[in-house]
């Protein structure tokens, strides 16, 4: 019982970690370049979730001081994550741009095939 309780209180963290692992795994093991980028996004998102949930208080509201409310959400993580999202977005855009160029040069999105083509040329 205790473990379930522990899990439920840390649910956000748990999900974030699971997402992180999924993203990480996708990024490293998939050959398809688009999937790699998707993995990167999943990983970033998991980190945003993690970061935001640090500041989250159940039942809390945005930190605007009002009568009778004692629970506020910590605004710092949310503010930071906005910046994080922008960074992640630009990374994604840039990566997609590179993928387009790679596709133009190689005619494939498969990382293994690209490596095979290159090594054939060198050999």
């Amino acid at each position: 019982m205790a473990i379930i309780e522990k899990l439920s209180t840390n649910l956000y963290y748990l999900v974030a970690i699971i997402l992180f692992i999924i993203g990480f795994h996708t990024m490293l093991t998939h050959n398809n370049l688009i999937k790699k980028i998707m993995g990167m996004n999943i990983m970033d998102t998991s980190l945003f979730l993690f970061f935001v949930s640090i500041g989250y208080r159940r039942g809390g509201i945005a930190p605007i001081i009002k009568e009778g409310i004692v629970e506020y959400v910590n605004p710092v993580p949310s503010a930071l994550i906005l910046t994080g999202i922008v960074i992640s977005l630009s990374f994604t855009a840039f990566a997609l741009g590179l993928v387009i160029l790679l596709y133009k040069h190689y005619g494939t999105l498969d990382a293994d095939k690209i490596i095979a083509m290159r090594s054939r040329e060198i050999g």
Partner: peptide
């Protein structure tokens, strides 16, 4: 703009993103 440079930079990007993820996680 050469093929090799784009391939190299994509590989750099993937690993770099991993590194960034790790750093952000640690900061969190």
């Amino acid at each position: 703009g050469t093929r090799d440079s784009i391939e190299a930079s994509f590989r750099y990007l993937v690993l770099s993103a991993l590194g960034s993820g790790g750093i952000l996680f640690a900061i969190a």
